[in-house]
Amino acid sequence: MAASTTMGDYQTQSSWRPCLGSALRTALACTIVGCTTLYGPPQLRKYLTYPSFSYMTTILIVPDAKLGDVLRSCWHVMYATVQVMVPSVLTLWLVGPKNFDTLLATVAVAVSAFVVALPESTHLMSKRIAFGQFVNVYVGTVVHGAETGVVMHPLGVAASTALGALASVLALLFPYPRLAYYEVNN
C-alpha cells in the first residue's frame, strides 16, 4: 500500500527547505573564504590577516537572505569599514602602535563603539561589523605591538571583511539549491 501525501507533509517540507538552502549557501560562502585564505595567491593572503572575521561576516550576511539583502549588506559592510578605517588609522598614528597597551585598547574600543552606536540612522548590520573591526584593530595592535603597521593593520581587517562580503555575494550567485535570480522574480 502506497503512503498518501497529506497537506501537513507539504507544509513540513516547505518549512525546512528554505532553511536547508540557507545553510548550504552559508557553507558555500565559508568554503569560499577558507579556500581563498588557504590557497589564494600569496599577494592576496598577506592582506587577509583575520580570516575568522571573514567567516563572521559571511555568517552575518548570508542566512535567510535574498540577493537584494546581500547586496544591501555589502553596502553596510563598506559603510562600516569607512567608519572604522578613518578613526583607527588616526588613533594608531597619534598614539603609535608601540605605545598601545591593554588599558588604551579598552578605552579606544569603548569610545569607538560609542561613536558608532550613537547615530540612530546607522543600520544594525553596519554597527555589528564596525564593532568587530574596532576590536580586531585595537586588540591586534596590543598583541603585535611595535611591528603593527599604522595603515596596513586596519587595511588587513578591512580586506578580511571585504572577503566575507564578496564570498556572500558569490554564494548567492551559485545556482544551487536555487539561483538567486529566481528568488528576485518570485
Rank of each mutant, 00 (worst) to 15 (best):
M1L: 15
A2Y: 11
A3E: 03
T5Y: 02
T5N: 02
M7Q: 08
G8P: 03
G8R: 13
Y10R: 13
Q11M: 15
T12N: 05
Q13I: 15
S15Q: 10
G21P: 04
A23T: 14
L24H: 03
T26H: 01
L28A: 08
A29H: 09
A29W: 02
A29I: 12
V33C: 02
V33T: 04
V33I: 14
C35Y: 15
T36F: 01
T36K: 04
T37L: 14
Y39S: 06
Y39K: 15
Y39C: 14
G40L: 13
P41E: 10
P41I: 12
P42M: 10
P42D: 09
Q43S: 03
Q43Y: 07
Q43T: 14
Q43R: 08
K46Y: 09
L48H: 01
T49L: 13
T49C: 02
Y50R: 01
Y50H: 01
Y50C: 00
S54A: 10
M56Y: 08
T57D: 00
L60C: 10
I61A: 03
V62D: 00
P63G: 06
D64G: 05
D64H: 09
K66D: 09
K66T: 11
G68A: 09
G68Q: 15
D69Y: 07
V70P: 00
L71K: 05
L71P: 00
R72F: 12
C74D: 07
H76S: 14
V77E: 01
M78G: 03
M78F: 06
A80G: 05
A80Y: 04
A80H: 04
A80V: 12
V82F: 12
V82P: 00
V82N: 01
V84A: 01
V86A: 09
V86S: 02
L90P: 00
L90M: 12
L92P: 01
W93Q: 08
V95L: 08
P97G: 00
K98F: 11
N99F: 10
F100C: 06
A105T: 09
A105H: 02
T106C: 11
A108W: 06
A110E: 07
A110Q: 11
A110L: 15
S112A: 14
A113T: 15
A117K: 10
L118Q: 07
L118C: 08
P119S: 10
E120G: 05
E120Y: 04
S121Q: 14
S121K: 15
T122H: 05
H123E: 08
S126D: 02
K127T: 14
K127W: 09
K127G: 03
K127D: 02
A130C: 05
A130I: 12
F131D: 04
F134Q: 12
V139W: 02
V139N: 00
V142W: 00
V143E: 05
V143R: 03
H144N: 04
G145Y: 05
E147L: 10
E147K: 06
E147R: 06
G149I: 12
M152Q: 10
P154D: 09
P154S: 06
G156D: 07
A159K: 04
S160R: 01
S160W: 00
A162R: 06
A162L: 12
L163R: 07
L166V: 15
A167N: 02
A167E: 04
V169N: 01
V169Y: 03
L170V: 14
L170S: 06
A171I: 14
L172D: 01
L173M: 11
L173C: 08
P175T: 11
P177G: 05
R178K: 13
Y182P: 07
